[in-house]
Design a protein around this nucleic acid. Structure first.
Lengths: 150, 150
DNA sequence: CAACATTTGTTGTCTATACATTTATTACGG
DNA sequence: CCGTAATAAATGTATAGACAACAAATGTTG
């Protein structure tokens, strides 16, 4: 069984609320670890993959760094440096915004799009296999997560 | 509303399975960020707090580094360096294991226990307030998380 | 018991998170 | 306009996660 009590060898929790915090952190770490290994052969990290997805969603419209930051899974992450990494790999381009020279327009390149499309199908298949739940349970889980942050 | 679609400005997901991965990662990041801020005034990180909790659970019995690693929320974390940080703050002590000189016995100090007891009550109260769910929903969420990793 | 394998922990390197600070540019109020 | 505030991005620093490589000690086997 995959019970959290066994996974971290802790028998008792203060209450279900405190247990669910631990359970969430553990589950997330479990997901991220497997994602890391998954992306590694493609030369990108999960966070970089996420930025590429955000950029593709723009359908060619340039996006500013702060706009990317707002859409990232981790709001505290450093979009500026992630984009620099992606640029070094030729997966995005970055140019000064003509209207406002403080801002920087970021766009995904052809190479970026190709890598993303290649990897995405694998990711989506892996994500699905990874989650040992029926469809109605997944929907429940999504609803509970949305509500708990509410 | 706290729907994940709004939180990261993504309207469509491939399917509920892929959505729940994103939802989990986002929710976890949301939790960790607030925990960081919470622990900061006490001079420790969430991970260091977790190690202290593991050590207290031993009730004075020394624990090896690898045993701590096994019980950590993030199995890929570097227990060796976390323990070094805690030692520098005087919250744990570390000594060579007499039976097996490869191993290192780690114990929580009085200062470590005092800090942990002080912080824990605040943490547990905050965790509970943080989660906008009824008791039966929290139990459901725990069950779904346990099952999904199964 | 000597040679080799295994285990335990430390260390090195790269990436990312969590801020605080800095620099450049634009907006605004007198 | 000019000076100051506000904004966008880059940069600095500390901690942690994800490995790979290493050293020391112990197990194992001929």
């Amino acid at each position: 069984m995959g019970k959290i009590e066994d996974a971290i060898q802790q028998k008792v929790f203060k209450d279900p609320y405190n247990k669910v915090v631990v359970n969430l952190l553990y589950t997330s770490s479990y997901l991220v670890t497997s994602q890391h290994a998954f992306f590694k052969p493609h030369g990108i990290s999960p966070e970089q993959y996420n930025v590429l997805r955000i950029l593709r969603g723009q359908n060619g419209v340039p996006t500013t760094v702060s706009s990317i930051q707002d859409r990232m899974l981790n709001k505290m992450s450093n979009a500026s440096r992630l984009i620099e990494k992606l640029k070094q790999k030729g997966l995005v381009k970055r140019e000064e915004c003509p209207n406002d020279r403080r801002q920087v327009d970021v766009m995904i390149t052809e190479d970026g799009l190709n890598l993303l499309n290649l990897v995405q199908q694998e990711v989506e298949r892996a994500n699905k296999q990874f989650i040992n739940l029926e469809l109605d349970e997944v929907n429940q889980l999504n609803d509970l997560l949305d509500k708990m942050r509410g």
